[in-house]
Design a protein around this nucleic acid. Structure first.
Lengths: 182, 182
DNA sequence: CCCCAATAGTAGGACTTCCTAGTACCATGG
DNA sequence: CCATGGTACTAGGAAGTCCTACTATTGGGG
């Protein structure tokens, strides 16, 4: 269905969605065009690169998670609940930690609940709040999926540990400047 | 509507979707949890960071483009056409260069055509092929949008030019390993 | 003690991405 | 000369994101 990162090193692996590898880097190519016409192009190349990286990684990860009946969005929600002390959190807390819109949480929880991987519960004191609790099946599922994902480094290839750490570091600077945290 | 990247340096700017800055970095926090439980966490942190960076940048850019009646997806398509020699390209070529699924091109071109920023034309010799040509209005629009985007470094903040270049470089390694190009 | 602003969650809608299927057309081999 | 396989595009649908309301509930100030 997706290949789940088997096959070969890097060259002849079929592209996720049926595209094939190009003989040149289209981002570098575009960057060249920009430079000719506008001069500075660093930020544009970086932004385009990030967009593309996200697309690649999400495709890779979703492909790995598909056999588990999960998407990355729902997987992340399950992980968050698994890490929580009581195995449950208010929806609002989930949105905050996952850094997504409240309606995205509603969406994810709806689907997870349909699969009986989580359960909505009333909050004991605040009737506005909905608690989301991970089920035993949810725990089992996320545990297995995690093993699988870690086995393939979350689809991340081509970077050694130091480079991986540096990448995270640079993006942390970006995120801080964007106001993600103080 | 979105703020268009004005206001302040980094701290008190309202988050794109109404979330506010947290007092800690949720990705670092999650990474700590992972390390406790599973040991290695480098790839997971990097992947999560990229996902978040994409979300931030896309929100930023779409906010800037909204006054121009464009989204980033459609903007990229217009830029591609603007850079092409004849101002027109086959849809398939566009999908290849933009690295998106053919149906995504159809979608983007549909909307651009409704706004009369591009025009579908028959290919002179191959009747399977649809050529997409940028209109004068399309050129004008993308020109103005580009000025705006370059003025705010495509929403990229917090990195100096060297760091920006390094970020692109690291992601290029990732993309190459994923088979984006040879 | 009550009104009113803030908070929590959801419904509905716009947009994007991908996938699967289908149709139309080209190009090559028998 | 046609049959077959590959290419180009689109229709329909699933999933995710965000946004704008809207309802319910809470908690504080007058």
């Amino acid at each position: 269905m997706r290949g789940v990162a088997g096959a070969g090193g890097s060259a002849q692996r079929p592209r996720p969605n049926g595209r094939r590898a190009l003989a040149f880097d289209p981002i570098a190519e575009a960057s060249r065009h920009w430079r000719e016409r506008f001069g500075e192009t660093g930020p544009m190349a970086a932004v385009t690169s990030i967009m593309r990286a996200q697309q690649i990684l999400l495709g890779e990860i979703d492909g790995i998670l598909r056999p588990f009946g999960l998407s990355f969005a729902r997987y992340e929600a399950l992980v968050l609940l698994m890490f929580s002390r009581r195995g449950s959190l208010p929806m609002s807390k989930m949105g905050e930690r996952l850094m997504v819109h409240p309606t995205s949480v509603t969406n994810a929880v709806d689907r997870l609940e349909q699969d009986e991987l989580v359960r909505r519960m009333a909050h004991p004191t605040d009737r506005r709040t909905t608690l989301v609790e991970i089920t035993d099946e949810g725990r089992a599922r996320v545990e297995r999926a995690t093993t699988e994902l870690m086995g393939v480094d979350f689809g991340l290839r081509g970077l050694d540990p130091a480079e991986t750490a540096r990448l995270t570091e640079l993006i942390t600077l970006l995120r801080q400047a964007a106001g993600d945290f103080t």
